[in-house]
């Protein structure tokens, strides 16, 4: 390994650690084969753009043309479209994968998603129950509270 390190230090170091993003290691002359994984190609951007146009247009059409009779069904459908579109953006525009930076970006993303889900569902759940279970109170009640 040390022999390798003398010849191509950056690459040997990067490979021994399992980084795949060679494009941002300060050297632009080499490691060009690695850059495609981090930047995405023209095809990637085009696929991502095409998919997100479709995934944006359909929810707007559903709401503006009143496609579903039940607003609940429509809400669930457009939420699903949003979830899919977020994944599309993550993969094709943010070039998210499980390998970049040795897997640390993916780990940070998973952690964030867990926290976001707990925050959102927890807030909505708790506040909904508070809202439905609290007695409506008039200002007189409030003043005479023990």
């Amino acid at each position: 390994m040390s022999v390798h390190a003398e010849h191509e230090p950056d690459r040997a170091a990067a490979h021994s650690r399992g980084y795949d993003g060679g494009g941002h290691d300060g050297g632009h002359g080499h490691g060009h084969d690695d850059t495609s994984t981090h930047h995405g190609s023209f095809k990637d951007y085009l696929i991502g753009f095409g998919l997100s146009v479709v995934l944006t247009a359909i929810p707007f059409w559903i709401v503006m043309a009143d496609v579903f009779r039940s607003p609940t069904v429509a809400a669930v459908v457009i939420l699903l479209f949003a979830a899919v579109q977020i994944v599309v953006h993550m993969v094709y525009f943010l070039h998210m994968n499980t390998r970049s930076e040795g897997g640390w970006t993916f780990l940070a993303l998973m952690f964030t998603i867990v926290i976001v889900v707990i925050t959102l569902t927890g807030s909505l759940w708790v506040m909904h129950h508070l809202d439905t279970n609290m007695m409506p109170m008039s200002p007189e009640h409030m003043r005479n509270m023990p």
Binding site: A5, P9, A13, R17, G21, H24, T105
Partner: peptide, 17 residues
Amino acid sequence: VFYDVEEAAHAESSTLL
């Protein structure tokens, strides 16, 4: 020498992380 160079390579990508 090896560790020094590795550190420099690391510093770049740690900005992105």
